[in-house]
């Protein structure tokens, strides 16, 4: 099976019954009752392959590509911006081109990096659907796609941030950026105190996914014991 590599990120707390025709155990999602929408996915995929729009290998390769993208990509970009002022300037000017310099595939999208400072905190949302800087962060977390987050991020961002444990002084300006199909945002968080002696590769470890969405702050060596 060409897609055998995709099950590594699934929890294996579910007992697998039986084997697939190729002799491999089914994934946990493979042995639940077939739903209407799963039937539609199978039918659409097969029709697309028969019509020559795509191939099974291409679908599998696309899944592999998406699986390989994680917030570690974004963290590497952030860490470079923290340590290389010229890179940071290029990133804030054109985040797509700056990320491509580091070898990341950004696609045709317009990517904009917004910088958190002592005065300004940035928060990213897609009120229309779920646009997300997936090329740098992987697929969006479930909460990013919920109606609650999408509705409230633009209405009461301070309250939403508080739910995520981010309490900002009233003096901090909160800017909410609503993504579009062609325009994605990524937050460049402020470099945490206590990281002055760390090098680029070490710094990336402190950059969390949520800090690049704006619903979190980077972990900091000083409060690491609290789980940051």
């Amino acid at each position: 099976m060409p897609h055998d590599h995709h099950d590594h990120d699934h929890d294996h707390d579910h007992h697998h019954h039986g084997l697939s025709p190729s002799g491999h155990p089914y994934r946990q999602d493979d042995d639940a009752p077939l739903t209407y929408w799963q039937r539609m996915e199978i039918a659409v995929r097969e029709l697309l392959i028969e019509k020559g729009v795509t191939t099974a290998a291409e679908v599998a390769a696309q899944i592999d590509l998406m699986d390989s993208r994680s917030p570690a990509n974004g963290a590497a970009v952030v860490a470079r911006a923290w340590t290389d002022p010229a890179f940071k300037e290029r990133l804030l000017q054109n985040a797509g081109d700056a990320s491509r310099e580091m070898g990341f595939d950004i696609g045709p999208l317009h990517l904009i990096a917004v910088e958190n400072t002592a005065e300004t905190h940035n928060l990213i949302v897609c009120t229309l659907c779920s646009c997300y800087p997936r090329n740098l962060l992987g697929l969006p977390p479930d909460w990013y796609k919920t109606r609650a987050y999408r509705s409230r991020a633009v209405r009461e961002p301070r309250a939403v941030l508080a739910e995520f444990g981010v309490e900002l002084p009233d003096s901090t300006t909160i800017r909410v950026h609503d993504s579009t199909a062609d325009m994605r945002y990524i937050v460049l968080p402020a470099r945490p105190a206590g990281t002055e002696d760390l090098r680029e590769a070490e710094l990336a470890a402190w950059v969390t996914r949520d800090s690049m969405i704006g619903t979190g702050l980077p972990r900091a060596p000083q409060n690491a014991t609290q789980g940051g």
Partner: peptide
């Protein structure tokens, strides 16, 4: 975690 069929929907969306 995303199920295989969900990843396939995502892949079909991106490819098409």
């Amino acid at each position: 975690d995303f199920a295989l069929w969900e990843k396939r929907v995502d892949a079909l969306m991106v490819l098409c």
